[in-house]
Each structure stands twice: as C-alpha cells, then as structure tokens.
Nucleic acid binder design. Structure first.
Lengths: 218, 218
DNA sequence: CGAGTATTTATACGCTTGCATAATTAGAGC
DNA sequence: GCTCTAATTATGCAAGCGTATAAATACTCG
C-alpha cells in the first residue's frame, strides 16, 4: 500500500527434493556453459529463479553443492550406461557392444559432461574425500566392464581367467575412456558413430572375438 | 638513511625469456597444487619471487599467462615423448613401443600433469583460442602416432592404407590416453610398468602384429 | 480462519581478485 | 661515473565472490 517500491519477490515453497534438484541442474548449466569458474552462487541462484541466500539453506557451503552436482553427473552417466544394458539382447556379446556404444554416443559423450568431469578432476588431487569417491566410481565401472567381458568370452567358448579379464578390463576401459575423451573434445572431426565403431573393432581385436556376428567363432 | 622502514624489495633485471619461463613455471606449480582456482596472480608472483604487477608487464592479461602455461605443458609432454623416440632403436616396431612406453611412464604419466591438463580442459570449452590450440596439439599427436603405426605395419609386411591407419591411430591414441588417465588418477593400484605392458599388448592386438619379437611375422 | 513455522528474500560484510598506475631502481651505454 | 631507460616495486581501486543474518512470507495444522 505504501509506495510499493522495491516489491519483494513473490515465491512458492517447493519441496526439499525439488529444490535440490533444481539447484543442481542450475549448477550443471553454469558449469557446462562457462566452466567451474562460471558457477557462482549468484549465477546459479538466478538460473534456478531463486535468491542466492537460499542455496545456503539447502547446501551448507558452495563446495557441497558443487560436489553434489558432480555426483549427480557421474550417477547420471552410470545410469544411462546401465539403461542401455537393460534394453540390450540377452547375448553377452551384444550386451558388451551395447555398453560400449552407449558410452560412446549421446548423451554420455557430451562436451558438457567432460567439462564438469575435468573441473572436478582438478580438485581430486587436493581433496582426499573426493579422491576416494572418484576411485570408487572408477573401480565400479571397471568391475561392471570386467563382468561383461568375462561373459562375452565364455559365450564364445574362450577361457576367462581372472588374470586375463582384469587386464582386458583395464585395456578396454582405457579404450572407452580415451574415445569418450576424443569425442567430447572434438566430436565434429569424427563421423556419426565412427568412434563407437572404432571402439568395437578395437575391443574385438583385444579380446580376439566378434561382438556382432552370431557365430561362436570366426 | 631515514627510518628504512618498509624497505623496498631489491630485485634483479632478468632477461625477458627467463622471466617468462619463471612465471610460467610458477603458474604450473600453482595449478598443479591447488587447481586453476589456486593460480591467482598474487600467488604466482610470490612463487616467482616477484611482485604481482610484473606479470602484467609480460602478459597483457592473466588469461594470456594461463594459455601460455597450457601450451608449455603440452609442448613439454610432446617433447618428452619425442625424446624417447630419438633414443629408440631403428626398427619401427621398437620405435612404436618406445613411444607408448614413454607416454605411459614417468615423467609423462604424472598426477600433476593430469591436474594441469584437466584444469585447462575445462577452459577449452569456453575459449575458442584455447580450443584451437588444443585441437592442434591433439591432431599433431595423432599424426605422429599414425606415422609410427604405418611404418610398423610396413615393417611387418602388412598393408598400411590410409583408411586403416587413421582408424588405428584413433583407437591407439584412445588406448594411450585412457591408460595415461588411469595411471595418473590411481597409479598406486597398478604394478610398476603394468599399464605400459597392458597398452603394448592391446595395441599389438589391434594392429595384429608383434612389437617386441624380432621376426617379421608370427 | 488464525497462529505458528519452515521456507524464502533481502541486505550487508569482509575478502580476494584482476587490473591500473605512479614511484623507484638496476643496469646498459656513452 | 653519469645518464637515461626499461624493468620492477608499491599502492590503490572497483568488482565480484562466498557467507552470515535479519526480515518477510507462503503454507500447514488445528
């Protein structure tokens, strides 16, 4: 009723989960567009259509928000890769192929994912807690891969001893990571699906089996 | 002779090259230890035993210094890998092996290098100039690799058409990058030389040739 | 429908940052 | 040795940062 200047922002009280998700999403937007440095509390708040103070209500410190955002991305990528497995055929070789193809295509192979990942990696070196979290994620991924490899080898009638599957998992993990990296950094210099195909061929060579053919041997 | 309080810092006039090198080295120290965020002009100046203002005398803006530092790192790694080639035997297969081993061992496979690389990668996405610099570096590395691959194939009496060597280069580059990454992130969970050996074996499988044996064929 | 509370806004503080600029000084050249 | 200049220091500023905290308000429950 008085000069109604500086009208206070109207707002809705959202559920705690919704707000956290929105804030994390806004954070990812910022990081994706302008790097970690561009993810300031004020910018994040603006994107989430919220005032800066609210961030501290849900996340004690900005680092907590950042690390939550990182976990969200890693989790999202893991889930997306697993989803591809669920929709895959029963044949172990087809499953391994689906896993590789999923990791080397949209939406996992995306520059934004790399940006956030890289920004976080730079922190891993300093923060032991994050280092542990990262290692767990890496080993989890590799273990999942090793299982796929063993089953594919067995399905082809090949020996699948632990000593070898471990080494294969390390190498194939490297192939996937390396191609993912290349794709994220310069997707435009590769043809559509080229990297996934390259990965499959390389992995077939490493394992000495075919992932596409129906037969047990070549 | 007056109260000599606040005595001005004594200094030496260094050559332009020396100063630039020192500043870049100090920058790399900062980035390696505390990430890109830790590389402030004041901190860099302190490490270089210089006052902050001097940085602007040699680099118009902080970003220029950062990007110069990035180029220095990439260049250093490239040179180190090339050095390994110079000392290698004449046989193309041995040369390829030496190249791989060098990239997957000290001093290239070092957590600090990864920190630096990751910190800069986060910027590449935003800054087109850096993106170009990075792409040049990547393509240069891959071209060098492709030549090694072609020569190794020819030495083994295998066909080495461009279509195939390009694909091989992409895959093998991925193997090297991926293993480098794994090693930098968690060197302690791998045995000494394990990653280099794993890389060699995987690459031999991809190319279908042996890099260690003397014979032309298996 | 009214009171109470959890959620949200608003404001301000102290710090650090990159950058500008004036004052100094080391060292080269005559 | 003097002079001149380029290299270096010292100081300051405006902007943006994360965070703290008090005031306001939307929703819940009786």
């Amino acid at each position: 009723m008085n000069a109604q200047s500086a009208t206070r922002k109207t707002f809705r009280r959202e559920g705690e989960d919704k707000r956290r998700e929105d804030l994390i999403a806004a954070t990812l937007e910022c990081v994706a567009e302008r790097g970690l440095a561009g993810a300031t509390v004020r910018e994040i708040a603006m994107r989430a259509d919220v005032t800066a103070g609210l961030i501290r209500y849900y996340f004690p410190t900005k680092d907590d928000l950042i690390s939550a955002a990182y976990r969200a991305v890693m989790n999202r990528m893991t889930v997306q890769a697993s989803d591809a497995l669920q929709n895959a055929a029963n044949d172990p070789r087809a499953r391994l192929q689906a896993f590789v193809t999923a990791n080397l295509g949209e939406p996992i192979m995306d520059p934004h994912n790399l940006s956030l990942w890289a920004g976080f990696i730079a922190l891993v070196h300093a923060d032991p807690v994050m280092a542990a979290a990262h290692r767990d994620g890496y080993l989890g991924f590799r273990d999942e891969l090793e299982i796929l490899i063993r089953e594919a080898l067995i399905a082809t009638g090949k020996p699948a001893e632990r000593v070898h599957t471990r080494r294969h998992a390390i190498a194939i993990n490297a192939i996937i990571d390396g191609l993912w990296l290349e794709g994220c950094l310069a997707r435009d210099i590769f043809a559509e699906g080229e990297l996934a195909e390259t990965g499959i061929i390389a992995i077939e060579a490493v394992l000495g089996i075919s992932l596409t053919a129906e037969g047990d041997a070549r």
